[in-house]
């Protein structure tokens, strides 16, 4: 094989490895993209020191939706299904959860917002979805969410649904721990 063929071979092999790593780079790129566009419910916590409060707010209807991921036995529902709020004012809502099994369990709630363009105006000061939830057998709790809608939100949005899906991550954590311990 002559030198120019060797050079071509080298570049092409590098390109193959480069594209393999690029496929993994797509994972953080995707997260960044979602965060910038506010897609996918991947909202950041409200920035400290920024005030979204204002007195020029308007009325907004919020619907709370809860889902249980498949095989998630907990009772999980919003305390109020519909809430009238004002933009530019903090509001509080709660979700009721109960571990109705006889074993301790850990759960994680994954949020989503519809319509998706409301997402960038929604700021959550506190949300149970930021943390894992642990409940002993039979234990129940009221999980809080404290949020505000920026009053710059377009007039066309009058209805926003905040949806949460709760996942059982008890075994999942064990698996992860076992894996780390194994190393």
């Amino acid at each position: 094989m002559n030198n120019s063929a060797k050079r071509t071979l080298k570049y092409l092999s590098l390109a193959v490895f480069g594209m393999f790593f690029f496929s993994f780079a797509l994972v953080p790129l995707y997260d960044v993209f979602c965060e910038v566009t506010g897609l996918n419910g991947k909202i950041s916590q409200s920035e400290e020191g920024t005030s979204y409060e204002s007195n020029t707010g308007r009325d907004l209807t919020i619907q709370f939706v809860s889902h249980n991921a498949e095989q998630m036995p907990w009772v999980f529902k919003p305390s109020e299904k519909i809430m009238k709020v004002k933009t530019g004012k903090y509001s509080n809502a709660t979700f009721f959860v109960k571990n109705n099994t006889d074993k301790p369990m850990t759960a994680r709630a994954v949020p989503s917002v519809a319509p998706s363009n409301a997402n960038e105006y929604l700021k959550k000061l506190e949300c149970f979805c930021f943390e894992e939830q642990f409940l002993a057998p039979g234990e129940e709790a009221l999980l809080p969410v404290r949020f505000i809608f920026d009053s710059n939100m377009p007039e066309s949005i009058n209805n926003v649904a905040l949806s949460y899906t709760i996942f059982d991550i008890t075994n999942y954590n064990d698996m992860e721990m076992a894996h780390h311990d194994g190393r």
Binding site: V16, M19, F20, F22
Partner: peptide, 11 residues
Amino acid sequence: LIAVMPVLAGA
């Protein structure tokens, strides 16, 4: 193929 087969392998 060189551009996308590695992405499939990544997936």
